[in-house]
């Protein structure tokens, strides 16, 4: 049904998005807790900065990553020499770019979820003997779960379509950084690739549709689970 090239692009897309979402999630949760619960000077600025990837052109994000983590950039070179970590021209770089771009989706959804939790429940838990960590694990986290799930799924879906930041930062290498959107782009660019582009586009559309249905189902399940 799928050619090897198509299957490769599909699996790579899924892997990049999965890693991107999973790695960004803890940071999004921490940032959401900070913004939802803490009060500190410069909070509005931090809030805006964290949402920047949402409004910046993805190309700019890719360019910034290149200047910071490219093999000739100071940090990128240091990471490569001392820890053997290379983001440039690697699928991990694609995941990093995707994770960064879709970070605000997770942040917003988790923050909304946290804001919807009745603070009185935390107080009740306190009078019943629960300390801060205990309350976070047994009250806050389970009740924020619908928000976390929604955020992760939205971010995953958005990540599947990421193009600009990936192609700018890690280029378009088949089997390494050529995700579905990049493969479609390549197909369109090559003479006689219209049929291939159409097939890949259809694949993208089906993937998005299945993803959205699964997302809806997962969200409903978690809401029931937490008694909403």
């Amino acid at each position: 049904m799928l050619t090897d090239v198509e299957a490769e692009a599909l699996l790579l897309s899924l892997r990049v998005s999965l890693v991107a979402v999973a790695c960004a999630l803890p940071f999004a949760l921490a940032a959401a807790m900070l913004l939802a619960r803490a009060r500190f000077p410069g909070k509005t600025l931090v809030d805006s900065a964290l949402h920047l990837p949402l409004v910046l052109p993805p190309v700019v994000v890719g360019y910034l990553l290149l200047t910071i983590l490219g093999t000739r950039a100071p940090l990128g070179a240091w990471l490569l020499q001392n820890l053997g970590i290379r983001f440039a021209f690697s699928w991990t770089g694609a995941a990093l770019a995707s994770g960064l771009i879709t970070f605000p989706f997770q942040l917003r959804a988790i923050r909304l979820g946290l804001a919807g939790i009745d603070r009185g429940l935390g107080q009740a838990a306190e009078t019943l003997g629960a300390g801060p960590t205990d309350r976070f694990i047994h009250i806050v986290l389970p009740l924020a779960l619908p928000g976390i799930v929604t955020g992760a799924i939205t971010a995953f879906a958005a990540s599947l379509g990421e193009f600009g930041a990936i192609i700018t930062f890690v280029s378009n290498i088949p089997g390494e950084t050529q995700t579905l959107p990049l493969a479609i782009y390549s197909a369109i660019q090559s003479p006689g690739g219209e049929a291939e582009a159409a097939r890949l586009s259809l694949l993208s559309i089906s993937l998005a549709l299945v993803g959205m249905v699964l997302a809806e189902m997962a969200e409903r399940r978690t809401r029931v689970l937490v008694g909403q």
Binding site: D118, G120, A125, E126, T127, L128, I139, V226
Partner: peptide, 30 residues
């Protein structure tokens, strides 16, 4: 002394039961 060290039970007006837990787990929380 923080609330959890005071040994004072509190029944709130709006009951404040934990919505994600069964009645049994609510009862067993404290």
């Amino acid at each position: 002394v923080p609330p959890r060290g005071r040994r004072i039970g509190y029944v709130f007006q709006e009951s404040r039961l934990f919505p994600h837990m069964s009645v049994a787990n609510n009862l067993r929380f404290g």
